[in-house]
Nucleic acid binder design. Sequence first.
DNA 1: CTGACTTTGTGCATCGGTTCACAAAGGGAT
DNA 2: ATCCCTTTGTGAACCGATGCACAAAGTCAG
Lengths: 225, 225
Amino acid sequence: MKSPSQPRDRGIPEATVARLPLYLRALHGMAERGIATVSSEDLAGAAGVNSAKLRKDLSHLGSYGTRGVGYEVEYLVYQISRELGLTQDWAVAIVGVGNLGRALANYGGFVSRGFRVAALIDADPEIVGDTIAGLNVEHIDELEAVIKRRGVSIVVLAIPAAAAQQVCDRVVAVGVTSILNFAPVVLSVPESVDVRKVDLSIELQILAFHEQRKAGGPLMAVDGQ
Amino acid sequence: MKSPSQPRDRGIPEATVARLPLYLRALHGMAERGIATVSSEDLAGAAGVNSAKLRKDLSHLGSYGTRGVGYEVEYLVYQISRELGLTQDWAVAIVGVGNLGRALANYGGFVSRGFRVAALIDADPEIVGDTIAGLNVEHIDELEAVIKRRGVSIVVLAIPAAAAQQVCDRVVAVGVTSILNFAPVVLSVPESVDVRKVDLSIELQILAFHEQRKAGGPLMAVDGQ
DNA sequence: CTGACTTTGTGCATCGGTTCACAAAGGGAT
DNA sequence: ATCCCTTTGTGAACCGATGCACAAAGTCAG
């Protein structure tokens, strides 16, 4: 039973949270183009979702629209940013400075959303000491020290699968509770730690499934048991 | 009751399709370690899901387990691979050979799953002509010709947001119906085309949301409305 | 062959998320 | 001020996915 005295329902559905960044991106684009207000219909179109869904999503944050008019772009940007925690500065460490790590270090989308790449860490002595995206690459032995010193709260793992669990354990041990994992392994972490994973090959496999179905379409003979 | 020998039920739930690659990965690992059969409990553990879910997922492909014993690893690998369409060879073109494109080109997870990087394409004359991951980088002007010549059926877009829609339109025009998009824009495509998107900054934003909540946790004073 | 044991496959209740459709709320014209 | 028009916010129906719990189906020992 939930208390009715709490006007802001802090229980925002996970599906909604996953879409807020999408809305935010669309809104930033509109703000740049000087659009002052936007209807749920238009914003939904720009974000690629259905307008009823968008309205329900936004309603979870509060009543920030004006009936008959729409939403004020700047105000909504602020509200969504605040809800997502982007009004504060997040120090991110990228572990693994291969091509993927470099791509991430140079990715503009981070900086513009309140994320600051605060450290680059690698195990390869060949790379350690290099400057990438304006940052010095530090040795994995320094992992714990760097995380503490720079106040890192989010760690991105862009390392081989074989090393992932081990590094994961180390960052969890120094208190990191948010991890973005690009290594193709299931990380085992305590309940309190949040792991999100991105597996590039999984996305391709899902595409292949649908592509195959399209191709085989109406045909699709008996399977080869 | 349905005939178990005929998994004619082509309506596999989307959520299941998204997990099949996960099971496949776990199974490959087991096959390598010489494990011949596995129970739903163990496989679910390795894939990071609940065992009832795993069994229900697999039941959509057919009855490939043996009660009292479990699933034969090799056989299950084959069945899932076939269902996902990984028993055939998929030619993939990567458009955009920046750091991300390079990371993808070198990513071993593709090759080992039936995907073959058949072309690298970029607009930068500085890069065109280079050899990366054993492939010659071709000019974007050749886009249509290369796709046709190599039989490319899946295109990966690893290009700036500003160029994405335009390139997307071109690949769709030559008949590509599966696109993996890394550019932070909503692509508009015909109904028949499948687009999956990966937005690196969205994942970080979702992490930030949860991290913020943890930090503010039990406290969370009244908000300023 | 029988009976104990293991593990699958699934019916069913449940839950979270999506969509519809409309009353409520505001703006602007007259 | 009043009425009409637009658009939000949301109740309620619907839909797909999840997880429990167990009967069915198989193995294996004796």
